[in-house]
Amino acid sequence: MLTAAIKPKKRVIFLYLLIPMAVYIFVVFIPLVAAFFYSFFEWKGGPNKTFIGFGNYAALIKDTTFWESFGHNMYIVIACIIGQVGLAFVFAMMISSRLVRLKGIHRTFCFFPNTISAVSIGFIWTMIYDYRRGILNWFLKLIGRPDMVKVWLNEPDLVLPLISIPLIWQYIGFYMVIIISAIASVDKEIFEVAELDGANGIQRAFHIVLPLIKNTLLVCVTLCIAGNMKVFDHIFVMTAGGPGNASNVMAMYGYKIAFDQQNMGYGTTISLAIFVLSMTVIGGSQVLVKILTKEKETL
């Protein structure tokens, strides 16, 4: 069975991988190694650097603002796994139901927020949350609850869920198209009878479709964690991390250190920490999923 098509020669693999690997190493890996190198220096403002060993790392461990930001990232990651991937899966299942009309339009429209830049999304939602003219407060007054009117983005306890909502809203369509295309790889006939109809249908969605597209869902979760561990633009536009540090996230903190405070050495240390933490969380999620699916299999 192991013929050339399934197990090609090493040379063939090497040739196929050469160009993408070379470009990738050039753009991503070399700067990363450079950043690692820089993280051992005090490097403020201009080009001069002073070697300080693990000084930046020692500072990082004691930096409460950073760890607070990490906590915010974790909050957003969890909210988005449930909101983005979870809802995308539900919506994908709903769209596949025979009861739903205008499927094409839903698919086209739901993806639309992805075409808009993050900065514009942030801007649009700032308008929704606006104290005076915003849709949210307008709606609350309309339904006779003016007591609930708030300066939404200035509430330290509410600001994290409030900035998570636009993120979820924008990316549901993104994960939806991925899930739909994964579902498409499953035999259509099988899928159509497994459509969502009643509690029975929901059960089928989980028992039949979920295992079939498990790998794609795992990719979605990985993408979701990766994306939200470095989330930046939306929050930058909406709150710039405020009020105070209540909605600060790691990437924004690193950005502020590197550019607003012009402390490049510490800024690169933070970004290294971001991806060490991201890798850890992604790895953790894989292990978790493995344990969960193992349990299911034994049941």
């Binding site: 070399i30 990363l32 450079a34 950043a35 990766a226 930046f232 790691m250 950005y255 933070i270 890798m279």
Partner: peptide
């Protein structure tokens, strides 16, 4: 996978120099 988790802003200076 590393490429997915890199905050681009933090690599601005190395990438510029490169």
């Amino acid at each position: 996978l590393l490429g997915l988790v890199i905050p681009v802003y933090s690599l601005m200076v190395p990438i510029y120099v490169l």
